[in-house]
Write a protein that binds this DNA or RNA. Structure first.
Lengths: 191, 191, 191, 191
DNA sequence: CATGAATGAGATTTCATTCAT
DNA sequence: CATGAATGAAATCTCATTCAT
């Protein structure tokens, strides 16, 4: 007899696991505490997830697809503005699953399924940034520069959303950095 | 009676702990396994480190100071070359304690002492990059641009050394990105 | 909706239980695995057999009656041949329920109903062997010798069918032993 | 601080395990009950025996060697008496480890180490009986008859000590059967 | 009738920590 | 100083059984 049956018991368990794993880490979170927070009996956790790592795998599968339609953020000819809009959108989507993202970063080391999911995601973000840059730059632009800028930006984004989130007082935006990158790209091929 | 007494038993314990924590995480590493790998009896671990977290704290104190003398890497007027030399040096120093860095990053969430050490280290790297940039740029340069570039570079460096280290096939160097940043800074204030 | 409804679901459950109990023992076999092998939902096992031990009792009731018509195996005057035929028949019948026999023997210790069934069966076999011996021996024969021989033969038979079945390379027949016993009985009363 | 330190804690644990396994079987005996009966904390059982099956293996290694000096039981020329003395000695030795023997028989199915130990033991008993028979028979004797008789007797002995032990009212001795076998052998080659 | 989600007691196992020697 | 037996709290996982549908 489920107590708060709005959400299915399975869903409540996953939610509780996500929170607790993010708070204390995978290993430091007993399944009993997950059950407690989810408001279900201890046995039910293992009924749905035979082994504890299965919880992690299920969480990976809940990772939202943060793909963004390139044409919706590109402002033709204005790299800086295009990047702002892209980063805004990415931030929003990444924030929506911030807890999840962070916990996965922590567990990537020891859980291959998690590691793979994260690498796929990073590559997707790099590709997306590159796409927007190319679409926004008016004339032609050095492909190597675009790659460099995209890699730097993706690193900074990922870094902030996974590692540097502890630094609560840091401003979320990256306006300064985006302007800098946009300017560098607009300046055309460096000699 | 220590078996391989070249290193002190205490040192061997710390070395074993560093390896094992990095491999499997702090929580997933039993002190008994640390003793085993260090080749010391189980009791000795707790003799030197009363509580398990004491091992982590001792490891933090082993963090080498990767400060680099600015004047040794700066090539006046050549930002790109200066950054290359700086990143080379940083990479070398960070790599020397790569395992340690990574493990600390993993445990930052739950061990405040570790978190603080990491933030101090990140800030130190940003400052150092900024110093080198300022010293290398010939004329004046927008302070905001230097800050942006330094932040982006420090992010990418930290990201690689803590998180992205799994990606074995990625080239360690960042030549392309460094050239790009150097060019952007050399181009002078963006409009 | 039974999937392979040739056999009734109840029958398939008993068959699966017999196999699994024999493979791993009663305690080490979860009812869920019985359901799985039988191809029925988990709930159905407990629907037909309220408690797990009920499965064992139902299996005991399936023990075939291996009684053999004495007159069909006795070759008057030829003890050896008579015993051969008897043992052949018994082997066939016991083999038909070999799995069941073995599992019951394993569980006899802890399930009184099973123990009783096995003792009844052993006594029946002794009696049957005795009957055949008496019918086959031409003249008179020491009753004590018949008893001894019957007991020895029943022991060897039971031993093989319950315990020693692991020894796959042992020949099933006991020709040598039967000839020996027949000769001993034929030799008349020992002094 | 051991409570009854006459016997070592490890020894008390093995003793308790032997008793309980024999009473209820391996699977039905929780390690917690073993600890309880041994008068040690639960953790100590797993300190000495990492996995539960390790307890069984340790018990197998405690199996006494019931070898008997042939020359001590043989009464030259008197097969019956020789067999009596042998069986008496074997009974005594087997009885000394009766509980252990029986429990091992039960678990042979699922624990290969146990199975092997038991087969070795059975073969040893057959060989010993054969030796005594050959030494006691005055003239020459058919080798096949000796083999048959030895196999029958070993079966009956093993059967009684492992399986048929439930039958408390059965007399332990086998005087009748031994006399019968001795007579059969003494009668010389059967035709 | 049949089902499978739900339950909770309890089993095995792990492990940091203590402490007598 | 150093050791490893001892301890017990707690973790993961299993499973017979119940019951609403």
């Amino acid at each position: 007899m489920p107590e708060q049956s709005e959400e299915s018991a399975r869903e409540r368990i996953l939610g509780a696991a996500e929170e607790l794993f993010a708070e204390a880490g995978f290993d430091a979170t007993p399944t009993s505490r997950i059950a407690e927070r989810a408001g279900v009996p201890k046995g039910l956790v293992h009924y749905y997830f035979k082994r504890k790592p299965d919880l992690l795998e299920a969480l990976v599968e809940r990772l939202p697809d943060e793909r963004i339609a390139t044409e919706q953020v590109v402002v033709a000819g204005d790299i800086a503005e295009s990047l702002h809009r892209l980063v805004d959108d990415l931030d929003r989507k990444l924030d929506a699953s911030a807890v999840l993202s962070h916990l996965l970063w922590r567990e990537a080391d020891t859980h291959p399924a998690v590691l793979e999911a994260l690498q796929v995601r990073f590559d997707r973000i790099v590709a997306q940034i590159r796409e927007v840059m190319v679409a926004a730059v008016p004339g032609c632009v050095e492909r190597a520069d675009v790659d460099s800028a995209a890699f730097l930006l993706a690193s900074a984004l990922s870094y902030r959303h996974s590692v540097a989130r502890h630094d609560d007082d840091a401003p979320l935006g990256m306006r300064r950095e985006l302007d800098f990158l946009a300017g560098a790209l607009a300046a055309g091929p460096m000699v």
